[in-house]
Amino acid sequence: MTINPDNVVYWQWGMLHLNATIVFTWLVMALLTGVSWLVTRRLSTGTRISHWQNLLEVLVIGMRDQINEVSRQEPGRYLPFVGTLFLFIATANLLNIVPGYTAPTGSLSTTTALAICVFVAVPIYGIAHEGPLDYLKHYVKPTALMLPFNIIGEISRTIALAVRLYGNIMSGTVIVAILLSLTPYLFPVVMQLLGLLTGMIQAYIFAVLAMVYIASATSAHGGRETDRNPPATSTD
């Protein structure tokens, strides 16, 4: 039984190898992009719109509202990054019900990659919003003594972000695999349903946490934004 999709290698050429993580990531990417392209090819600006366009609009509006609610800022700049995080993770997790599919989010490499993206995006958004000096001053607040702790906090929360998603998805897959060998037929199906729910929740948590981190870096009163963050500890 393979737990890590990184280890399933389809093609290898020297150092480069094409494993299941990358292949299924491409699959998810193709699915998302293909559906978006098909639907947005013919967008209606009138009062009558297609069901698919309606779905996409509901998704986009919902994500914008969520971003606005968390950051108290104009959501336009954050939507592509945070929205893509949510859509990618959610789609990758939901496809778990397809036989033969292995979620790329179950690989620590994928979650690490996403966490690194967030880790880099936070200072980029912060500097773009406040300028480099003002952004760096965040690290010596309230006193210069807090500098190491701030840096440690920054790194640790990135690691937590990666491990939380990986652990949840990987454990779901592992649990289903173990239960399948112990009590087949009905119980694994229930667990799989639970896994869908968990996957959606994790996608939401990952995206919201990313937004919270970015908001704390861009907002003048960043501390208050991070205080409003109870799910960070409760869902681990």
Binding site: I22, T25, S36, T112, A113
Partner: peptide
């Protein structure tokens, strides 16, 4: 794989921004 995923993710961000 991590670096490939980072690239993949950035490409996805661009694609979704462009098409969605």
């Amino acid at each position: 794989t991590v670096s490939a995923q980072i690239v993949n993710f950035l490409i996805l961000v661009w694609l979704l921004k462009r098409f969605l």
